[in-house]
């Protein structure tokens, strides 16, 4: 009992000290001007979600999201500082001001919009489910009682938790771990953005996307810290500007065409100028 009292006293002292010290260390989001003045913009991207955000063998970031990030930095006249993110920490990095913008293939949802501010969309997305050819899953009900692999912090996780409670979810922190688990047969299928699983299935023989579009038709939008109006407005204006030069179609050609092949229709994925067709 004495020890517990000692621990409690120490913790209380610690908390009091820290609270008083906190004022000095508190921070906030960076406005557009602050970003311009600092000479760099900090953008959070995936580093293992090919072909949207990944690191190639020369140590360079590549992908549909990265292409946009580079253009934003260029047009702002600052250097690009990339922070590697995983799905579960996208919101948290904005809320703790660790990044200015999140371009980690972030799907717009109303829940998320409570916690961060989304800009105009630049990509269409829905959920997809990929499974081994030998045991293809074509309907979500087939997953009842089976194991589905998801990445923590993704719309797939929320969707299946809310709508298909009979499905056992195996949750991983990163895409790499999730895909390895699928290949190792730790789950019967994997679900995340359909654009992603399609790309992965194309490059991994033996797996097929059995469910090509599940859940609502959503969009991928850039995200900034809640309240960061100056930055948000600039990004929105930028996306409209880029729309006039068909930037996102060029982005698709540069980063995604090789993956999806010559017959794929760019318009099924691309959103130009922030306007969803």
């Amino acid at each position: 009992m004495k020890n517990i009292a000692r621990i409690a006293a120490l913790l209380l002292a610690l908390v009091l000290t820290l609270t008083t010290a906190s004022a000095a260390l508190a921070d906030g989001y960076r406005t557009l001007d602050e970003i311009r003045d600092s000479g760099k913009i900090v953008i959070g991207l995936f580093s293992d979600k090919k072909p949207f955000g990944y690191v190639d063998e020369n140590g360079e970031y590549q992908g549909y999201d990265v292409y946009l990030a580079r253009r934003l930095a260029e047009d702002l006249g600052v250097a690009l500082e990339i922070v590697s993110l995983d799905a579960p920490n996208r919101i948290e990095y904005l809320q703790s001001y660790k990044v200015d913008v999140v371009l980690a293939n972030f799907t717009y949802t109303e829940d998320r919009a409570q916690q961060v501010d989304f800009a105009l969309p630049y990509m269409k997305v829905a959920l997809g489910v990929v499974s081994p050819d030998a045991a293809l899953i074509t309907e979500p009900e087939q997953l009842n009682g089976k194991t589905l692999i998801v990445s923590k912090g993704t719309t797939a996780e929320t969707f299946f938790e809310a709508n298909y409670q009979e499905v056992n979810l195996l949750k991983f922190d990163s895409y790499t771990e999730a895909y390895i688990a699928l290949i190792d047969g730790r789950g019967d299928a994997l679900s995340t953005d359909n654009t992603e699983v399609l790309a992965w299935a194309i490059e991994n023989p033996g797996f097929t996307v059995g469910i090509e579009s599940l859940g609502s038709l959503d969009t991928i939008n850039p995200a900034v810290t809640k309240g960061n109006e100056t930055l948000l407005n600039w990004i929105n204006e930028e996306i409209v500007r880029l729309g006039r030069e068909n930037f996102f179609h060029a982005d698709y050609e540069a980063t995604l065409r090789e993956t999806y092949g010559p017959n794929a229709d760019a318009d099924s994925l691309v959103v130009e100028g922030g306007v969803v067709e």
């Binding site: 579960p88 920490n89 948290e92 923590k152 912090g153 996780e157 929320t158 938790e161 195996l170 949750k171 991983f172 922190d173 771990e177 688990a181 730790r186």
Partner: peptide
Amino acid sequence: SVLAMMDLMNVADTLRTS
């Protein structure tokens, strides 16, 4: 959590991120 096992830490982490 790296084994996708729901131990105490993973339970807490999943709740925190969701």
